[in-house]
Amino acid sequence: MLFYSIKRFGLATLVALTVSFISFGLLYLSSDPAIAMAGETASDADIEAIRKLYGFDRPILVQYLDWLQRAIAGDLGKSYYFRTDVSSLIGERLPTTMMLGVSAITFAIVFSVPLGVAAAIRPNSIIDRIALFLSVMGQALPSFWFALMLIILLSVNLRLLPTSGSDTWLHFVMPTVVLGYYAAPAIMRLTRTGMLEVLSTDYIRTARAKGLRPSVVLFKHALRNAIIPVVSLAAVQFGFMLGGSIVVETIFALHGAGFLAWESITRNDLPTVQGLILVFSLFYIVLTFLADLLNAWLDPRIRIS
């Protein structure tokens, strides 16, 4: 287990470094950062002065290492648009995104794992068909459309929920459902396939031949094995939600990191975009790493090898 964790950790660090290099390079890919800072109307001399001042004339690797050192210390530069530290800007917005992510993944799991299990117990039954229908819908409906439909129904017509903002938990209900429903189909399908596969294994037959009660066979022996890949998927989905909630946060005007991403992209605020990409990717990498550990913990064949 220790060796496995170290290997995974090393791998995660490598990926993180690569990602950091790419997001660093983003500034240079899009335009000359000196021109961007000085503004379109600046003279050549001014641009040259800024280039010297900020060190843009140094070799790229030196600049990267310098940038990396500061990034690790928490300094992600200054936002062009908000005129504040990118790190404190992101720090202010993250709790909202986190809250949305956690509630959405919880909703997705609570909704789709039991449905997947029920569908696997009776393949081709009514429940299985309903589950299939819901998952096809979840995959086919664009989130923005689903979000708008919910707003029309629940906010405009029934006046049950607020349309936008992030002040109370009520504000999070619709965004959670929209974002969670987006992740649910994959989790549901994987639970169903996993359960179907496990239920036909020899060790389930053994469990029944021992006279174990159906609930023990199902929830102890089968689900425990079927859930292992689902855990990985859910972790990846969660990482995806943290970064991918741009559409949902924008529609519901939740002032989270996704909304910030939208704001800074439309305003060409490169340092903020860069910082967000870095933070989102790191989340993703950390979550994948944690999912690997969780997987090993759940599966003795990985844990003890």
Partner: peptide, 19 residues
């Protein structure tokens, strides 16, 4: 099952739960 009659299967490699 398991108390008055028991069964042993062909595949020992897969007949026990790996978890």
């Amino acid at each position: 099952r398991g108390s008055k009659m028991g069964m042993i299967f062909q595949e020992p490699m897969t007949s026990l739960n790996p978890a």
